[in-house]
Design a protein around this nucleic acid. Structure first.
Length: 424
DNA sequence: TCTGGGGTCCTAGGACCC
DNA sequence: TCTGGGGTCCTAGGACCC
C-alpha cells in the first residue's frame, strides 16, 4: 500500500501556473484571507507558521517579499482531479483521501522495484501538472502515512520512502526518531497525554500498554497502535461512502448586522448546498441553519435552528422556503455576525425516496421540479455559476458580506477567459 | 478591523422499550 | 435496608483529519 500526496499542494498549484513564483517564498491564505494554510519550502524557511492569522503577519510578509495568494478552490479542485486521474492510471486501487492525497494499492511481483516505479510516477506528475509529489510505502495506511512523512522530511529520501523493506531493527531505530505527535491520528490532546506518561516517540507509542491506550483513547488508539505493529485495521475503500451530512459555511468579509443581509447570505449557502446534494445524488432529511458572532470578542452569541422535512429533498426551492424562517427565528438585533452556515443532515440516496401521505404535491409535480433543478444546474455548469440565480440571494454586487479574496489568482484551468496564453 | 471550511468516527449518557 | 436486566436508538460533544 502507498500514500501519495502533493507537497505544499495549494502553493504548488499557484506556482505551476505562474513560473515567476518559482524560487520565491509563497503562502496561500484560507477563505476570507483569514489564516496561512499553505507555504512552499522557501516560505517555511523564513519561519512562517501554519495557521497564523494573516492580519498579524501581513507586514512581516511584505518586508520579506513573500508572495501571498487568496484561496482559489476552482483551481485546486480541478488540479486535484487531474492528479487523481493520473494516479488512477498507474495503480490497481485508489482511495482519494483528501484534495491532495490518495491511498493506493499495487499488485506487483515480490521483486518489483517500487522505488523505480515511484520515481517514474513523480517525473510524470511533475511534467504533466507541475506538482511535486511524495510517495510512502507501508503495510497499511498508518505505515504508508509515516513513510510518506519520512519521504518528505528527510532530504536524502528525495520524496520516496519504503517502510516495507526495513528489518525489525531498522524499523525500531526509525520509529525511535519520530516524535509521537507526528503519527497520523495522534492530535494535541493524545500527544500531551502520551508525553505525560513518558511516551514521546513513535517507537514508545507502538510498544506501550494497549490496555492503557484503550482506556484513554478507545478503539481508535488501539487500531493505530496495531497498524504500527503491522496489522491492517483500515483497508482501502475503493468507492467513497455516501456522505452523512453536508455543510456550507463561510465567514463574512464584513460583519453582518441586518436580518436582510443575513437571510441573503444564508440563502446563498442553501443554494450551494442544494447543488452539492444533487451532485452527490442525495436528499436531505433535515436542515440546520447556524449563525454566530466573533469568538474573539464579547458578547459571544451562537445559535442554530433545525427543520425536519416531511419528505427528504434536494430541491433548492424547498430548502430555501424551509431555511428563511429559521434565520428570522435565531437572529438577534445588535449582534455583529461574522460567520453562518447551513448543514444538511439525515442524507439519503436520491433513488430511494419514500413518498409522504401528507404532502399535496404529486409525483408528476416532483418530476417537473427535478427537471427544473437539472436544467438550472446544467446552465450554471455550462455558462458559469450564477447564470441562473435565486432572487432571495441578492446579487454579488450588492453583498457587503461576501468573503475577502484580495489576492486571488485566475481560474486557469476551469474558465476559458482565464486560460494562460503563451506567446511563442 | 482582521483569526477557515468541511468532514468522520467514537463514546457517554439519556430516553425509551419489554 | 433493599428499587432488575438487557437492549435499542438518538444526540451532544470530543477528538481527529486535511
Amino acid at each position: 500500500m502507498a500514500l501519495i500526496d502533493a507537497n505544499n499542494f495549494y502553493a504548488a498549484c499557484e506556482q505551476s501556473f505562474d513560473p515567476s513564483l518559482l524560487g520565491r517564498p509563497v503562502v496561500v491564505l484560507s477563505n476570507n484571507d483569514g489564516c496561512i494554510v499553505a507555504r512552499n519550502p522557501e516560505a517555511r524557511a523564513l519561519g512562517i507558521c501554519m495557521g497564523t492569522p494573516y492580519f498579524r503577519i501581513r507586514q512581516k510578509l511584505e518586508r520579506l517579499k513573500v508572495v501571498v495568494r487568496s484561496s482559489n478552490y476552482a483551481l485546486y479542485g480541478d488540479m486535484s482531479q487531474r492528479l487523481m486521474r493520473s494516479l488512477e492510471s498507474h495503480c490497481e486501487e485508489l482511495e482519494i483521501y483528501s484534495i491532495d492525497e490518495a491511498f493506493v494499492r499495487l499488485s506487483r511481483p515480490c521483486d518489483f522495484n517500487l522505488r523505480d516505479w515511484a520515481c517514474r510516477l513523480r517525473s510524470l506528475v511533475y511534467r504533466n501538472l507541475g506538482l511535486p509529489i511524495a510517495v510512502g510505502f507501508g503495510a497499511n495506511k498508518s505505515q504508508a502515512k509515516l513513510a510518506n512523512y519520512l519521504a518528505k522530511v528527510v532530504p536524502a529520501n528525495a520524496g520516496i520512502f519504503n517502510f516495507l523493506t526495513l528489518s525489525d531493527r531498522e524499523k525500531r531505530e526509525l520509529l525511535e526518531n519520530v516524535a509521537v505527535e507526528e503519527l497520523w491520528g495522534v492530535g494535541p490532546k493524545l500527544a500531551r497525554w502520551c508525553r505525560s506518561r513518558g511516551v514521546c516517540t513513535a517507537r514508545q507509542f507502538r510498544d506501550m500498554s494497549s490496555g492503557q491506550l484503550l482506556s484513554k483513547y478507545g478503539v481508535v488508539g488501539l487500531r493505530l497502535q496495531s497498524e504500527l505493529r503491522g496489522v491492517v485495521c483500515w483497508p482501502i475503500a475503493k468507492t467513497a461512502a455516501p456522505k452523512k451530512e453536508t455543510c456550507v459555511s463561510r465567514s463574512f468579509g464584513q460583519p453582518i448586522t441586518s436580518l436582510e443581509d443575513l437571510q441573503q447570505a444564508i440563502a446563498t449557502y442553501v443554494v450551494r448546498a442544494g447543488e452539492k446534494l444533487r451532485r452527490q445524488r442525495q436528499l436531505a432529511g433535515a436542515l440546520t441553519v447556524f449563525i454566530r458572532t466573533s469568538a474573539f470578542s464579547s458578547p459571544f452569541y451562537s445559535e442554530s435552528a433545525t427543520v425536519q422535512f416531511h419528505m427528504p429533498s434536494n430541491d433548492t426551492g424547498v430548502l430555501l422556503t424551509a431555511s428563511i424562517p429559521l434565520v428570522k427565528k435565531i437572529f438577534r438585533p445588535c449582534c455583529r455576525f461574522t460567520k453562518a452556515g447551513v448543514l444538511m443532515h439525515h442524507l439519503q440516496g436520491a433513488e430511494h425516496l419514500q413518498q409522504s401521505l401528507l404532502l399535496e404535491s404529486t409525483l408528476e409535480d416532483q418530476k417537473r421540479r427535478e427537471r427544473l433543478m437539472t436544467a438550472i444546474d446544467r446552465l450554471n455548469g455550462r455558462y458559469g455559476r450564477g447564470t441562473i440565480g435565486w432572487a432571495v440571494c441578492g446579487t454579488e454586487s450588492d453583498s457587503t458580506w461576501s468573503m475577502r479574496r484580495d489576492q486571488l489568482s485566475r481560474a486557469f484551468t476551469t474558465c476559458l477567459d482565464d486560460v494562460p496564453i503563451v506567446m511563442a
